[in-house]
């Protein structure tokens, strides 16, 4: 009999946000970027500045869904030696802040580690679950079984190009939330939010009561407020990575990260 997770999951974050009549802010950083220790400090700083839940990115050699900013950060993490063991350690430290902590990972590292063993590692560290950008539910039977057994969140993606039938089957396979990848393209900050997002969220809601998070492209409080007006969670990645990439030193990077997090946290409370 496997252990069931005792860490906080996305349901906890949505319960809190619902009580405050606002959207959840979900922040992404690659594990081990710019190094293992700093990435823990950075994710902790994000939580302290108002990010509700953290996506810890598992750095991977072939990230086909990521734009240049996250690619560069992941490469730096890999070059620094950050591997699956370090990622699970980071999850444990970040989950200790009390924020639900998910791992976002391409699938081969999980397969190589062993699906059951990876799930056990998440449970042991208090992790909430996985977001799987290149695993669709029709290929995910092993993971779905492992997550169900342990009460872990399993977050799959829907896209503007998904048929209604696929939106429905994908949404119904999710626990925690459904990740609406709301632009057709790779990750990266964009100056305007996507016109594809609203209709995709509506189609997803028609298929499930599970909350819907919108990702890809949000970088400031105004955009966050706009997305928060129709989504349950606002997902931000590249804008956070950029804070650390552009900073001349760690401390100013962390300061920029706090400012950005605070701006976004204010945005999800505005729901403009």
């Amino acid at each position: 009999m496997s252990a069931v997770t005792t860490g906080r999951t996305m349901a906890d974050a949505f319960a809190t946000a619902h009580a405050e009549d606002r959207a959840v802010l979900l922040g992404f950083l690659p594990a081990g970027f710019p190094d293992v220790e700093t990435s823990v400090r950075a994710m902790t700083a994000m939580v302290e500045a108002g990010v509700d839940a953290i996506e810890v990115g598992l750095p991977y050699t072939d990230p086909v869904l990521d734009g240049p900013v996250i690619q560069a950060a992941a490469q730096q993490a890999l070059d620094g030696g950050c591997r699956t063991a370090e990622v699970l350690q980071i999850v444990q430290e970040v989950a200790a802040t009390g924020a639900p902590t998910l791992v976002m990972t391409y699938w081969n590292p999980v397969l190589a580690h062993g699906v059951e063993r990876f799930a056990d590692g998440l449970v042991a560290g208090g992790g909430a679950g996985l977001i799987t950008p290149d695993l669709t539910p029709d290929h995910g039977a092993d993971w779905i079984a492992a997550a169900d057994e342990r009460g872990l969140d399993k977050v799959f993606l829907v896209a503007p190009s998904s048929t209604d039938a696929r939106v429905a089957t994908t949404a119904q396979a999710c626990r925690g939330f459904v990740y609406a990848a709301a632009v057709m393209g790779v990750t990266g900050a964009r100056t305007t939010t996507s016109s594809l997002a609203g209709p995709l969220v509506a189609r997803t809601r028609a298929a499930t009561d599970t909350p819907v998070g919108v990702g890809l492209g949000v970088s400031n409080g105004d955009q966050a407020a706009e997305v928060a007006s129709y989504a349950d969670a606002v997902i931000v990645g590249s804008a956070f990575v950029r804070c650390l990439l552009d900073a001349p030193d760690t401390e100013s990077g962390l300061a920029a990260l706090r400012d950005t997090a605070a701006d976004l946290a204010e945005g999800v409370r505005r729901r403009a």
Binding site: P133, T136, H139, A159, S161, R166
Partner: peptide, 12 residues
């Protein structure tokens, strides 16, 4: 084999 890809490419 199979199709281990982002959902965004499934339709294509």
């Amino acid at each position: 084999g199979g199709r281990w890809i982002p959902e965004a490419l499934v339709a294509a």
